[in-house]
């Protein structure tokens, strides 16, 4: 079964949609956190830590982080595609970007689930 579509008008549509869906997720999270922070006003360490140990906030924060990293991947990938002409340098930058973002995702999971 070979069903790969690499050319045509719909090439890149999936990423285009993911970039927009992740943007909506991040905007909704931002609004949610503004409300949470305004209501709870966590000014001390314990209060601040408690906000993120709360199940719903932890879940939402992790989804926000994943959306952010995927969104950043598409944006930075486009940036390298726009400005870096040399294929080898571009491929290296693409790889480094993915590695950094995957590492960040693991780091974020570690921070959140230690709470």
């Amino acid at each position: 079964m070979i069903n790969r579509i690499v050319v045509g008008a719909h090439y890149g549509l999936k990423d285009w949609i993911i970039q927009r869906v992740s943007a909506v997720v991040m905007a909704a999270y931002s609004l949610f956190m503004v409300i949470v922070l305004l209501v709870l006003c966590p000014t001390t360490f314990d209060a601040w830590r408690n906000v993120f140990s709360f199940g719903l906030v932890k879940f939402a924060t992790f989804l926000f982080a994943l959306s952010l990293f995927y969104h950043a991947w598409i944006g930075i990938r486009d940036l390298w595609m726009d400005y870096v002409k040399s294929v080898s340098i571009r491929l290296t930058l693409h790889a480094l970007t993915v590695l950094a973002l995957v590492g960040y995702a693991g780091w974020m999971a570690a921070i959140l689930w230690r709470l």
Binding site: A72, G75, I76, L79, A100, Y104
Partner: peptide
């Protein structure tokens, strides 16, 4: 966007 990426 680039600034935010660098600050991640």
């Amino acid at each position: 966007g680039v600034l935010l990426f660098l600050m991640l």
